[in-house]
Amino acid sequence: PPSSTAAPSSLPPYFIKGSIIQLADGELKRVEDLRTEDFIQSAEISSELKIDSSTVERIEGSQTSANFAVVQFSVGEHRSQVSVEVLLEYPFFVFGQGWSSCCPDRTTQLLELPCSKLSVGDVCISLTLKNLK
């Protein structure tokens, strides 16, 4: 069975539009200006972190709260099944597309972060450890 990760009940502050993000090379960018290449290049510099491609396989409403969704991913080359329970407005970064959430209207309303609709088949950026065995 897929593993499940508990999610916090509110979004962290770095997703708010205008938040300053430091890339691995020290460059500073606003969260809304981040591009796919920024994550890829930062992971290349990192000695510990590796970027994985996580494909959205299923999106369901959470049974515990109407504010949450359960997103099932197929992670990495081994297509490991991982489910996460996240707030509807939680933004994921989709390769070549940018920030996307289950409810982009809420994301834009709460964070002012420009956001697309997260859909089955979208390939999100996720992290794993480089030395994961």
Partner: peptide, 25 residues
Amino acid sequence: NVEPRSVPVFPWHSLVPFLEPSQSG
């Protein structure tokens, strides 16, 4: 009067979920 304020800077990896594949064996 405008006083300078420190602006928080967040590391890039904070924004990306850490999706760990379930261990099998």
